[in-house]
């Protein structure tokens, strides 16, 4: 095991895949000469050259489309969108072409396309640089959507995404690139399907993904220490397809559920997970499932307002107590 940062894990996955397969290439704004806004492609330009590490103009929709077209001919592009907010500009190519071409060609054309997007609220970046778009991506048939909460998964999910024959969106987090964690030294692949129990427990399940896994773990620690409540924390990790069976299996054990999302509640991960619980294991529930989520506002600039607009470990802790009546 080696300890590395989230950005280093992403860089390692790029490097290994590019060394292995000459048809893997990376493109995006400032990823080459400048090394990437979050350093995730540092050094690759010098190593692989400008044909495979491409600094693009600021034209998100069309460079995404160029990646999609190259993927349709068997290349394995890794397209970085500098901030998830800019992915709105690339939605036509992503949802109309990447996500649909395999289906609408009757399975005759594959699109092994990877898009990496730093998402989430960081530090006072304002409404147009603080988007969380998981609800948008996970609503698109034909895409796979995954989101790493640790350096280990940042590495393993990118490795799997590059090998996958379907288009994959990887949602990273602007505040997590310097997060440290253990990553095995030998090559491995994180599944693009299924969820993972990152803390076993018996009293309730806290479903989380990406940064909210950390809030959930912090809250679970406090619940155990202060109240003797053992919360199970499940990292959803793959948001599309969501692991219906895995989600239900945990709640069949714990009988209570809490979903924590950094996104606003309407039409989100929380509502989707709770719908799955209703459909799969309603009679196993001992209490109504609860969502902890962002407030339904464009993220404000002011530090205090920004902080108030997104959830935190304290809110998760309080919500768990409410569910258990303690």
């Amino acid at each position: 095991m080696a300890e590395m940062m989230y950005w280093q894990a992403i860089l390692r996955a790029h490097d290994e895949e590019m060394a292995r397969d000459p048809l893997v290439f990376a493109m995006g704004e400032d990823i080459g000469v400048a090394g990437g806004t979050y350093k995730a492609t540092t050094g690759l330009f010098a190593k692989y050259g400008e044909q495979r590490v491409i600094d693009t103009p600021i034209s998100e929709n069309s460079y995404t489309g160029i990646g999609v077209g190259a993927a349709m001919l068997g290349c394995r592009p890794i397209v970085e969108i500098m901030s998830v907010n800019f992915a709105w500009l690339a939605m036509d190519q992503l949802m109309n072409n990447a996500a649909k071409v395999h289906y609408m060609s009757g399975g005759r054309i594959r699109c092994p396309f990877v898009m990496r997007v730093p998402g989430g609220t960081a530090h006072q970046l304002g409404a147009q640089h603080s988007a969380r778009m998981e609800k948008v991506f996970m609503g698109i048939s034909g895409l796979r959507v995954v989101t790493p909460s640790t350096p280990r998964d940042a590495y393993g999910l990118l490795k799997s995404a590059v090998r996958c024959d379907d288009p994959v969106v990887i949602i990273e987090h602007e505040s997590m690139y310097n997060l440290k964690g253990e990553v095995p030294e030998s090559e491995f692949f994180t599944p693009l399907e299924g969820c993972e129990t990152v803390r076993p427990g018996t009293d309730l399940t806290i479903f989380a993904y990406n940064i909210s896994v950390h809030w959930a773990l912090e809250a679970a620690g406090r619940l155990s220490r202060e109240l003797g409540i053992e919360a199970e924390v499940v990292d959803l990790r793959a948001l599309k397809p969501l692991d219906r069976a895995g989600i239900a299996a945990s709640v069949r054990r714990t009988h209570r559920a809490l979903v924590v999302e950094e996104d606003e509640a309407p039409v989100g991960v929380g509502s989707e997970v709770i719908a799955i619980l209703n459909e799969e294991c309603f009679f196993d529930l001992d209490a109504a499932p609860v969502r902890v989520h962002a407030r339904d506002v464009p993220i404000p600039y002011n530090r205090q307002l920004e902080k108030a607009s997104i959830p935190n470990a304290g809110e998760v802790f309080a919500a768990a107590r409410r569910i258990l009546g303690k």
Partner: peptide, 25 residues
């Protein structure tokens, strides 16, 4: 024949992407 597409202008970048793949191969 890599397809017909319904979004006007959508194929421009795809075509450039095919050319990018040809260039790489």
């Amino acid at each position: 024949f890599m397809g017909g597409y319904a979004l006007v202008g959508g194929p421009f970048p795809l075509a450039a992407g095919f050319a990018k793949a040809i260039q790489m191969k």
